[in-house]
């Protein structure tokens, strides 16, 4: 498909540091090739801001191929933009039209403090994993990899959950800023596999408690997370988390 050139108006959340009050500022992005990714469009805007002696827009990104989970903003009210199963770095400008106005805001949730502009602190996600998102095995002690056969369907189901990239879009999109999809994905991944079963109870108990401690909201089964997750993680993983939690608490 041949590239077109479009002009856009951006309204971007600008906040020079965590403790300073921010606001939406308007910029124009002109002569944008529709072959660019959303982040490349921001690169172009930033290059111009620098040339004009202005402060470029800070945004997180790294792999730019949809796997590291570093990028992410709410674009026109949608986490990672309006294309489904897509991270912001994989959203391309051909999905916008000439003359569009695009509002870009950071992930919003109590545990996600703004660091600068669109950059937020997501260390709470690491803390959630620290609360139990692992299998306690030291290097050196493992049996042969084929010692325990695992049904292909089980491995596939575990993979579906393990595909989470930890971007936080589920939390940003959730009306309650709940982290249930993220935690559900990890608990499901590990509790489905025989290797993860011994610690299943402890994991579910601790991770669920950690969510509250960190200030995430509660799930009200609105499924906005599932609709925005770039990796298509299903709310069935949340149901599985609920199940694991019930098993852990009531037995």
């Amino acid at each position: 498909m041949s590239a077109k050139r479009i002009n856009l108006t951006l309204k971007v959340w600008r906040q020079s540091a965590g403790e300073i009050i921010g606001s939406l500022k308007t910029y124009s992005a002109s002569d944008i090739s529709t072959d660019m990714s959303f982040l490349e469009m921001l690169d172009v805007v930033n290059e111009n801001l620098i040339k004009n002696g202005e402060d470029p827009i800070a945004f997180d990104h790294d792999c730019r191929e949809g796997i590291c989970g570093m990028c992410g903003s709410v674009v026109n009210g949608r986490a990672h933009g309006h294309e489904s199963n897509t991270t912001l770095c994989q959203l391309h400008m051909r999905h916008f039209s000439d003359g569009d106005t695009i509002v870009i805001e950071p992930w919003r949730a109590k545990p996600f403090k703004v660091i600068k502009d669109l950059v937020v602190d997501r260390s709470a996600l690491d803390e959630l994993i620290q609360a139990g998102g692992f299998i306690s095995v030291n290097a050196g002690g493992a049996p042969d990899a084929n010692a325990i056969p695992i049904a292909r369907e089980t491995a596939e189901a575990a993979f579906n959950a393990a595909a989470c990239i930890g971007c936080g879009a589920c939390i940003a999109a959730c009306p309650n800023a709940s982290a249930m999809l993220f935690v559900g994905a990890k608990v499901s991944h590990l509790s489905l596999l025989p290797q993860g079963k011994p610690e299943a109870k402890k994991r579910a108990r601790q991770m669920v408690r950690k969510m509250k401690e960190l200030g995430f909201g509660n799930c009200s089964n609105e499924a906005e997370c599932e609709a925005e997750c770039p990796k298509g993680i299903s709310i069935r993983e949340i149901a599985r988390l609920n199940r694991e939690f019930i098993k852990a608490e009531f037995s």
């Binding site: 299998i135 050196g140 493992a142 056969p149 393990a162």
Partner: peptide, 21 residues
């Protein structure tokens, strides 16, 4: 040893229908 350890960590490697790697 790497593969053994990774499976023990819960890495969902591809498997065949018999459940082996």
């Amino acid at each position: 040893n790497i593969i053994d350890h990774c499976v023990a960590q819960g890495i969902p490697f591809a498997r065949d229908y018999g459940g082996l790697l």
